[in-house]
C-alpha cells in the first residue's frame, strides 16, 4: 500500500517529504502559539482539500457536501469529549468512523440508485443541507449557537477572559472570593 503510494515519486519528492516530517516534529518545540495556530490552519486546509481531491480528482465524482463529513467528525469528537469525557485523541478515531459511515451510506444510496454526474452533486448538497438544518436544531449539541469546548486558557489574549470577569465580580459580591489573591495576581 505504502509502496503503491510512493510509486513514481521522484527521489527529490521523498527528500522533501522527509524534510516536511522533520519540520512538523520540531516546529512545536521552537515556534510560538501564533505560528503553531497558522501552521495548524495550513495543514487543516491541505487535509480538507486532499479529502475533496480524492473524490473529484481521483474518482471524478463532484461532491458539494463534503462539509457534512467535516462537521460530523468535529461534532462526534466534541460530543464525546464534552458529554462523556473521552479524550479528543480517542474521539479522533470515533470521528473518522462516524464520517466514513455517513459517507458510505450516502455513497451506497447514490451508486445503488444510479445517481451520477450533476445529480450526484445535488444529492450531496441535499444531504449536507439536511444535516446542517438538523444540527441547527439539536440542542444536545448546542443548536444554532454552536458547540463550545472548554479549552485551556493558555494564550495571553484569550477571548474567554473578558467573559469571565463579571462572573468573578458576582461571586465576590456574594461573599465567596473564587480565587486566592496570589492566583489572581498571576492570572490578571
Amino acid at each position: 500500500m505504502i509502496a503503491l503510494l510512493l510509486e513514481g515519486v521522484p527521489q527529490r519528492g521523498l527528500h522533501l517529504l522527509v524534510g516536511l516530517l522533520l519540520t512538523l516534529v520540531t516546529v512545536p518545540l521552537v515556534a510560538n502559539d501564533y505560528l503553531i495556530t497558522v501552521l495548524i490552519l495550513i495543514l487543516y486546509f491541505a487535509y480538507v482539500g486532499q479529502a475533496w481531491n480524492i473524490m473529484m480528482g481521483f474518482a471524478g465524482q463532484l461532491s458539494l457536501g463534503h462539509a457534512l463529513y467535516v462537521g460530523l467528525g468535529a461534532y462526534a469528537a466534541a460530543a464525546l469529549y464534552v458529554h462523556f469525557g473521552v479524550s479528543p485523541w480517542i474521539g479522533l478515531w470515533a470521528a473518522m468512523v462516524v464520517s466514513a459511515a455517513a459517507g458510505a451510506v450516502i455513497g451506497f444510496l447514490a451508486f445503488r440508485f444510479g445517481v451520477a454526474g450533476v445529480y450526484f452533486a445535488i444529492l450531496t448538497i441535499a444531504f449536507g443541507e439536511f444535516a446542517r438544518i438538523g444540527f441547527d436544531h439539536w440542542s444536545w449539541l448546542g443548536g444554532s449557537a454552536g458547540f463550545f469546548l472548554p479549552v485551556a486558557n493558555y494564550t495571553r489574549n484569550d477571548l474567554l477572559r473578558p467573559a469571565r470577569q463579571p462572573d468573578h465580580v458576582l461571586l465576590r459580591d456574594a461573599g465567596h472570593d473564587p480565587l486566592p489573591p496570589s492566583s489572581c495576581a498571576t492570572r490578571c
Binding site: 440508485f113 444529492l123 441535499a126 443541507e129 439536511f130 438544518i133 436544531h137
Partner: peptide
C-alpha cells in the same frame, strides 16, 4: 414543526426524488 426547520423537509423530498426518480 419548527419554522426554522422547514427546509429539512424540502431537502428530504429532494433526496427521495433523486433516488427514486432522478
Amino acid at each position: 414543526f419548527t419554522p426554522s426547520a422547514k427546509s429539512m423537509f424540502t431537502f428530504a423530498i429532494l433526496v427521495l426524488v433523486l433516488l427514486f426518480r432522478p
